[in-house]
Design a protein around this nucleic acid. Structure first.
Length: 351
DNA sequence: GAGGCGTGGAA
DNA sequence: TTTCCAAGCCT
């Protein structure tokens, strides 16, 4: 099949089986660049199912990019809490401000302009240019890499194969219906050409797929093995004041959970901590610590974490770095999932 | 360019 | 339980 026959077959499949998603527009309607941008950033390394409720909440609370730009950054961080990769939320807010203040609320309409904005890399710039502005752009995400590796039976492992896979994607990208094609080829990877058990029997590209012909579709793309994740350990401090508020502090703006709130804790290291060793690290020294039974476990991209929780009552809201937060307002804080686990653990075991 | 950076669902 | 990994970006 020629490239134009392949793109036609894919678009026909897409027109027939198009998934309904909150950020997806019906044929003929022009997509809102703000919605396209917001959804694409949320979808970076994140599943559709996880994104949907966040997308609806953000667009309800901040209907236009100017509204998002006007919001305090911590409101945005708190609204993003639970979605992960928190640098995205900071970049999202910074990008909204740039677009609102310097561009009158209009996003750049080509890849080069989009690429200048924080949080918009090669993939996202191409996706917005195609979906929001109808420009031909070679959109290459993990789905497209997988589809191309199979279509052309690319045996070279990722990430070394990336340049070749992009060239192959470009060879199939049509000049018309740019946005539909971009979404179609990603949908193909997301729904049929899946990492495991691909549904080759339903695939519009099956007749042209070399890996399918060779019977090796499910084994592609090849990837270099990842290093295994170490385990780190720490002690988190659940400090409660007489009025029932607990002590939170903000993490440094960059790095792990950057800019998010946390319960104070020891360093996270490989060796386990004793309570005697951990206690001096606490920002406050209560009369006595109660080491709660059990551990909070959480897995990040690069390591596992086991957090013990030490609970203590302080005589007053001592002046320390951090904020005292009433229990009924913890939910509204920019607490990542790990710290919500700590709170749940403490509330279940401490009293 | 290789590693840091979250989370939850599926197998 | 463990492993994999999902519409990547940044340094």
């Amino acid at each position: 099949m020629r490239p134009d026959e392949l793109s036609s077959a894919l678009l026909a499949w897409y027109d027939r089986d198009r998934r309904i998603l909150p950020w997806r527009y019906a044929p003929g309607l022009t997509a809102d660049p703000y919605h396209v941008w917001l959804s694409e950033v949320m979808l970076q390394q994140t599943t559709v199912a996880a994104v949907i409720p966040y997308f609806l909440a953000f667009t309800h609370r901040w209907p236009r990019v100017e509204d998002l730009a006007a919001a305090p950054v911590d409101d945005v961080m708190a609204a993003w809490a639970g979605l992960g990769y928190y640098a995205r939320a900071r970049n999202l807010h910074a990008c909204a401000r740039l677009v609102a203040e310097w561009r009158g609320g209009r996003f750049p309409d080509d890849e080069a302009g989009l690429r200048q904005l924080p949080g918009i890399g090669e993939y996202t710039a191409a996706a917005i240019a195609a979906i929001a502005f109808g420009r031909r752009a070679v959109v290459v995400d993990g789905n497209v890499e997988r589809v191309m590796a199979r279509m052309f039976a690319v045996l070279e492992p990722l990430p070394a194969a990336k340049p070749r896979l992009k060239d192959l994607a470009a060879s199939l990208t049509p000049g018309s219906r740019a946005g539909d094609y971009a979404q179609a080829v990603m949908d193909l990877g997301a729904t049929l050409c899946t990492p495991r058990s691909p549904a080759c029997g339903l695939c519009p590209w099956r007749p042209a797929c070399r890996a399918q012909g060779l019977g090796i579709a499910e084994t592609l793309p090849a990837k270099v093995a990842k290093a295994e994740r170490p385990t780190r350990r720490g002690v988190a401090f659940w400090l409660m004041a007489p009025d029932g508020s607990v002590l939170l502090r903000r993490r440094p703006p960059k790095g792990l959970l950057g800019g998010m709130m946390e319960f104070p804790s020891t360093e996270w290291r490989e060796a386990a901590w004793s309570l005697d060793e951990a206690a001096p690290v606490s920002p406050l020294a209560p009369k006595s610590w109660k080491l709660l039974p059990g551990l909070v476990t959480h897995t990040f991209t690069h390591f596992h974490l086991e957090l013990a929780v030490a609970a203590g009552r302080t005589p007053a809201q001592a002046a320390v770095r951090g904020v005292w937060c009433p229990l009924d307002r913890l939910e509204n804080q920019a607490l990542p999932t790990l710290m919500r686990k700590v709170a749940r653990h403490a509330l279940a075991k401490a009293y």
